[in-house]
Every structure is written in C-alpha cells, then in structure tokens.
Design a protein around this nucleic acid. Structure first.
Lengths: 246, 246
DNA sequence: TTGTGTGTTTGATGTGGATCAACGGTAGCC
DNA sequence: GGCTACCGTTGATCCACATCAAACACACAA
C-alpha cells in the first residue's frame, strides 16, 4: 500500500494513561477513569522516517494521529507545483483532522525528522466519544483550536509584513517549545528556510534576510537552524506598531 | 448586555425538520428520526441587522449559529487596528466554532445584510450528539470542512497572485450561490471591495483594478456589486499556469 | 431637488519583497 | 574522512502591488 514503515502493534495496553504527553495531547483534562477508557482507543503506533509521508492528499481517511515523538509539516500542492505549507506540528499535536469532511485527506503530512505517531482509528474515536464526555469535549476543543490557529495564520499572511511574520513565527515556536518543557530562548528548527518561507508566504531569501536583520538588531542569535532569542519583548514590539505593508 | 435585536423565541417547534436549508446546514444527511430530535436543539432564532455583530472577539462562548437568512463576515483585529477578514458565510453555514477551544469567541461575526440565525446551545449540542450518531458525525464534518477551507485560504494568501486570488474568490462564490439554487453566473456581492481585499490580502484598489481587468478580458461583467461571470473556464485557467508571484 | 457620506474607479508614483546570481557552510553518505 | 548534495547567505536588479490622489457613482436624508 504505502512505502512507509509498518505499523508497530504496541504491546503496551496503557497508551495514554501512562504517556507523559497527556497535558499536551487529546486526553488533556480528562479524569483518571476516562483516561483508562482512552487506552482502548489508541491501537498502534507508527514510525515515520524523516521526509516520509504520514499520509497524502487523496488518501482515504481512516484515522487521526497524535504525534508521540518528532515533528511534521502539512502542505497543500497546486497542480502547477506550488506548495503551501499549512502548518508545523510538534509532539502532542493532532494530525489528520482535514480528512473527516470528505473522508479523504486533503493535504500531505510529512515528517521533518524521524518521528512516531499514535494511530487513533476515527470510527472508534466517534464511538468512544459518544460514551466518554470528556473525550468528546476535548476532541471538539482540538478541532476548534485548529480553526483558531488557522485564522491566526490568515492574519499573518494577509495583513503582516515579512519581518512581522517571522517574528510571530519565532515567538510561536518558542511558546510551543516552552509548553513541552524545552527552553523558550534556545531551540532547533527542524524545517528549512524554504519551508518557513512557504508557511509565511515568503521566499526563502526573504526569510534568510529577515533572520540576518534580527541578528543585526540583537533580537536573536541565528546559527543555521539553531535559534537563540535574545530579546523576546523586542520581537513582540515588532509585531505591533508597524507602518504595515499591504 | 448587547445592543442587538432580542432573541425571538420561535414558536415553531419544528426548526430543522421543516427547514429548506437542511441539505446545506448541520442536519445534512441525517435520517427522519434524527431530524426530529434536532428540533429540540434549535431553541430560538435571532435577527441581526446589517453591520451589527452576532458576537465579538472575547465574548463568552455559549452557542453556535446556523445562518437562516442573510450573510456574515468574520474577522480578526490586531491591536493597531489592522483587520483580517477570515471568511464570508452564507445561508446554512455555521458560525461560532472558533469559540469552543477557549470558551471565548476569538473573532468577530458581523452581518453583511439584515440576517437571521438559528441559535444552537453548545452544551445541548454536545449532549444530543452523544445520543444521535448522525448529528455527531455531521458536526465533525462541519468543523473539518472549516479546517480544509482555511487551508485553501492559506494557499490563496501565501502562494497566489492578486488576479488568481480574485478569480478563486469569484469561482468560490459562484459555486456557493449555485448550491443555494441561485444562478452560478450572476450574483450580488454583499461585501465591499475593502472587505474582499482584506479577505484576499490585497488593498481595495488592487481588487478594483483586478475586476476592471477581468472585465476588459471578457471574463466577467462587473457593475458595482453585481457580478456576471461570462467565462468560467477562463477564470479557472487563470488560477493555474500562472508564472506566480511570491 | 440638492447635499452628504460612503464606496468605487482610475492614474501616477513608490517600495517591499521577488527574482537572478554567486558563493559559503554543513551534514548526509560512501 | 572526504565528497557531494543540499541549504543558507548576501548582493544587484526588477516588478507586483501598495500608496497617494482625484474624480465619480450611488444611497439616503432633509
């Protein structure tokens, strides 16, 4: 079927209740009892090597995926080859929600590094969330959060200038690394300048120049993919009070 | 509380089962029996005058809304006043999904004309969708469809040129009017050039010029807000094979 | 009717970011 | 450990769209 690494039928029956990602993932806020029921839901794990697809646009939709390790990008391709990266996903985040509407995936999900996901059969998820109120509620929140995030990206793309977009991107990454217990000030980007550019509606040269400019201004120290934020407040200031572009 | 027209406690107990918008709205694809149960869900209708808010960013989230008549825009505001229109909604479409994630609305919903919505209490919706499988499934599809739509807008904003964006916008409007039984070729836009521009990440002058250019090329006949599409295929061609901008 | 305000069109000019090009760094791979 | 893609940086130039400006169309109210 697919040239990806086969499913690992995880022997561990305690998928979620023992996972250290609970407070970032679908089970967030659920009670002990509810959590136990969740374990029946997560059937298997799947490893995805760097650059491989978790799913492709057009694939039949059967499951959503919780990222257990690693990170991904999602993108949409136009017939003429243009790529729009629609998001970067980190541990605990959910992939595949786009597939529910037509029962076909509408975008590609590609691993940015060797990664692992928990496979959540969608039919089972609907079934269980009819019984487990906390699961239903959390699942709805996850979908809604994705919609709100998308609106933020529209704001970026439609109303912000190149440097504002990159500043917003860096602050967002920093905040998500923090939530995962990593340093807010120092992190490693897994995506290329081109992928950042595609996400932000910019060319890679523009991204690179903006990084250089931030470095000159003392906002960040950049060494390839390694980022150190030196002036968080300065970046925040950049986003507002700009004379604006379009 | 709010300076909007008060809730009309609709005497009609048959909200959805008799509504002619079923196949465009939340109840789509539900069985007769399921539909009857839906009627308990839609408690009231609310009229919103042109330019008034259905809800504002920051308002507590209690309900989602199905548009019964009229149309809306949703937007996000930056502190410095910049506006990003995140969508235009027509009859049968659902508003308010952004509020589920934080229990506060994250955008503004404003009527583009005098409109009416069905108020769907969210707590009741969750309750009922635990019992009515078809409702649960449809609701998830509606949310997922919104996510897919948002990805399409990102594609527009991030990867397409001004004229491609407007062409895609017009084709999208045409298709949605068709689904509502109106002419695919001739329709009336309820939003201003500035609102279209904000949605498409363009200035109103650029939108106006693109309209003029489309008219010169014979793709459409434009008279203010009244649009007649003369060459659907031509517009479609515009979207692909473009040398591209950014 | 005329006035007033809001929305639209069109022209002239400016500029942010794209494009083209060349070089430098680094990491994956034999 | 050295070769070779790929990735990132920087400079020069270009162009699509923004900005500024002015006139025009239409809606509504007095």
């Amino acid at each position: 079927m697919k040239a990806t690494v086969p499913v690992t039928v995880a022997g561990l029956k305690t998928a979620c209740s023992q996972c250290n990602l609970v407070e970032l993932c679908l089970p967030f806020g659920m009670s002990e009892n509810e959590l136990d029921r969740l374990d029946e839901l997560v059937g298997a794990r799947r490893k995805i090597k760097r650059q491989q697809n978790l799913y492709r646009a057009g694939d039949p939709f059967e499951a959503i995926y919780a990222i257990r390790a690693g990170s991904f990008k999602t993108d949409v391709l136009l017939e003429d080859g243009r790529e729009q990266v629609t998001g970067f996903q980190m541990t605990g985040e959910i992939l595949g929600l786009d597939g529910i509407s037509t029962e076909l995936h509408s975008c590609n999900a590609i691993a940015l590094e060797d990664s692992e996901v928990c496979v959540i059969a969608y039919a089972k998820l609907e079934e269980l969330s009819r019984e487990v109120e906390g699961l239903q509620h959390q699942f709805h929140k996850v979908m809604s959060r994705e919609i709100v995030r998308d609106h933020g990206v529209m704001m970026l793309l439609g109303s912000m200038r190149a440097e504002e977009r990159l500043a917003a991107f860096l602050l967002n990454m920093s905040q998500r690394f923090t939530a995962r217990g990593f340093s807010a000030a120092e992190f490693h980007l897994r995506m290329t300048r081109e992928e950042i550019g595609s996400y932000l509606g910019l060319k890679l040269e523009t991204v690179s120049r903006a990084f250089s400019r931030f470095q000159d201004e003392g906002f960040v120290a950049v060494q390839q993919k390694h980022i150190r934020i030196l002036d968080n407040a300065g970046l925040k200031r950049l986003i507002q009070h700009q004379p604006c572009g379009r």
